[in-house]
């Protein structure tokens, strides 16, 4: 892999998608997670990948970030095939992307300040006073400058996620992957996170990929939606366009209908068979 592939930031004005997925197949044991999936993530936009729990949304983020390799297909980030990279090149690429984990994944032995300073200390040789300034700027952006000396165990769930977001933007990445950023958050925190994700994306010229099943919140900030289920892309388009989709599955998912193409029951043998009920022979 040439060094120039990683030497510059992504060009937001470029028309080509930042992430291109073609023919992606991935299985875990006998279970098919993705089957010949194609999708494009446009640059500078907020793209949401939505689907029911267990649809493989987080797995898709892990595939895009090279944490796992696909069984078949090709995943390119900024023109570079992620799963063909060696460890060194993959780490070079990852310096330009960040991920906000569902659990926040803050380092529990470091303060909020030290957590945000961590990537700066690992990858730059900036003097300490400059690191301090940068960290305080990132913390100010997420409203946690005053919480810099707190330990992760002293933060609420929403604060932990904001601190993790400050850490995610520490190196000014070209792309942030959000794994269920709204799950388990109260309405006010959810509103704060929605505003932060949109504002940071536009102000910093990022590309954001949000994986979520919080339909209303995600659709409110996404420029483009992909709906996935059973290993396939069921539908995709702008949120307003999907609202008027004729697909029964899309209708059920977007409007949270309890019944529809998505079965309430997990696949199982017949109920009578499971309860060992015998059918009475017909009387003569």
């Amino acid at each position: 892999m040439s060094a120039t592939a990683f030497s510059s930031r992504s060009d937001p004005s470029s028309e080509s998608p930042l992430v291109t997925v073609r023919g992606l197949s991935f299985r875990r044991g006998d279970r098919i997670i993705f089957q010949n999936v194609d999708l494009d993530i446009p640059r500078g936009k907020v793209t949401a990948i939505m689907g029911p729990s267990g649809a493989g949304k987080t797995t898709l983020l892990r595939l895009i970030s090279g944490q796992i390799r696909p069984d078949a297909g090709r995943i390119e980030v900024d023109g570079v095939c992620v799963h063909e990279l060696g460890r060194k090149d993959l780490y070079q690429l990852r310096k330009r992307m960040s991920m906000l984990f569902q659990s926040s994944a803050l380092f529990t032995d470091l303060t909020v300040f030290e957590n945000v300073a961590f990537p700066l200390r690992e990858h730059t040789r900036l003097p300490e006073n400059l690191i301090r300034t940068l960290v305080l700027m990132k913390l100010e952006a997420v409203g946690l400058r005053g919480a810099r000396d707190l330990m992760p165990s002293e933060l609420s769930g929403g604060m932990a996620r904001r601190a993790a977001l400050a850490r995610a933007i520490a190196l000014d990445p070209m792309m942030i992957l959000y794994d269920e950023p709204f799950s388990g958050q109260d309405p006010i925190t959810m509103g704060v996170l929605i505003k932060l994700i949109r504002t940071l994306n536009d102000a910093l010229g990022l590309t954001s990929i949000i994986v979520s099943h919080d339909v209303k919140e995600t659709a409110s900030i996404a420029d483009y939606l992909y709906l996935i289920s059973d290993g396939l892309v069921v539908d995709h388009g702008a949120p307003l366009a999907l609202e008027s989709s004729s697909s029964a599955w899309v209708e059920q998912f977007l409007h949270a209908l309890p019944d529809g193409p998505m079965s309430f029951h997990y696949p199982a043998p017949s109920y009578a068979e499971d309860l060992a009920l015998r059918e009475e022979p017909p009387r003569a």
Partner: peptide, 18 residues
């Protein structure tokens, strides 16, 4: 379990070294 190692890898920091 708390994804701190995965977060480290996503920050291009090798947990083997760190």
């Amino acid at each position: 379990a708390t994804e701190q190692l995965a977060a480290m890898q996503m920050m291009a920091v090798d947990p083997f070294a760190r």
